[in-house]
């Protein structure tokens, strides 16, 4: 007889598998799309602009943008996967089953966010593999590369989960990724070093949390970043904590899930 308070592992796995099945079912959209868009970025930024910029911090421009590109996908994919994953059952009404099942909020989050994070990590690695076809890559700190990859995927999947709970229509679901995540990522030094900006904009950029993620990730690749790696790690952990707190608060209040 299993204890009542034990983790309901079959339930977490059921949600996780269900979400992953959705991912593989839409493999064309989930996997092929990021590969194509990454290739396009390489053609446009790598080949067209790269031929003029040549190097940033002694790093060939084509290689320089790889961490930023991965971050861009990681952030948008995490947010959109996780938000859609929880929003759709709410929209379709199938959420009734999850609410009536003997599962804790923690287990629901583990299932949905775990699956969303897995998907974006898979996509991130596919992009890395695609990129390595275009430019020679060397990862200076593999451990920290994986650390940033996992934590960023997890953090932004949590963030997406919160958006999926908050949204009451498909429009709102698109709103945050479109108006906040994508601009912050593009302006967060994905394709340039913030050292290249005039001092004023460099200072403004430091308020953009994505700068710290991209910088840390780039440091893991090349041993160099816009800000000290310790700051990047701290920022990543702080944002993770913030999202965890937000999710915990939501479940404590039953917000948008139960009337």
């Amino acid at each position: 007889m299993k204890g009542v308070s034990m983790l309901n592992v079959p339930a977490v796995l059921a949600i996780y598998r269900f979400e992953m099945a959705r991912f593989w079912r839409t493999a064309l959209q989930s996997i092929v799309a990021p590969v194509i868009s990454t290739s396009l970025y390489f053609v446009v930024f790598g080949a067209a602009i790269g031929s003029r910029v040549q190097t940033v911090d002694d790093i060939p421009y084509g290689a320089f943008i790889v961490p930023g590109l991965m971050m861009l996908s990681l952030l948008t994919q995490s947010v959109s996967n996780a938000s859609f994953g929880i929003y759709f059952p709410r929209f379709a009404g199938t959420i009734y089953e999850i609410l009536s099942a003997p599962i804790s909020p923690l287990e629901v989050v583990l299932g949905f966010v775990g699956a969303a994070a897995t998907k974006s990590i898979v996509i991130g690695l596919i992009i890395l593999a695609t990129a390595s076809l275009f430019v020679p890559l060397h990862i200076a700190h593999p451990f920290w590369m994986v650390f940033f990859l996992l934590l960023t995927a997890l953090t932004f999947s949590l963030f997406g989960f919160v958006i999926g709970l908050w949204a009451d229509g498909f429009e709102k679901l698109q709103l945050v990724p479109l108006l906040i995540v994508t601009p912050l990522t593009f302006l967060g030094g994905s394709f340039y070093s913030i050292e290249m900006l005039p001092p004023f904009w460099r200072a403004v950029s430091l308020f953009n949390p994505v700068v710290y993620l991209v910088s840390g990730f780039r440091w893991a690749f090349f041993g160099r970043g816009d800000v000290a790696v310790g700051v990047s790690i701290a920022a990543t952990l702080a944002f993770l904590t913030l999202c965890l707190g937000l999710v915990a608060y939501i479940f404590r209040t039953g917000y948008r899930l139960k009337s």
């Binding site: 379709a92 003997p102 599962i103």
Partner: peptide, 18 residues
Amino acid sequence: DAFEKVWDTVSFSRGLFG
């Protein structure tokens, strides 16, 4: 659900209940 198969969705329910 819409896209899931009957067998899968019923198995999912069983898992959900631990």
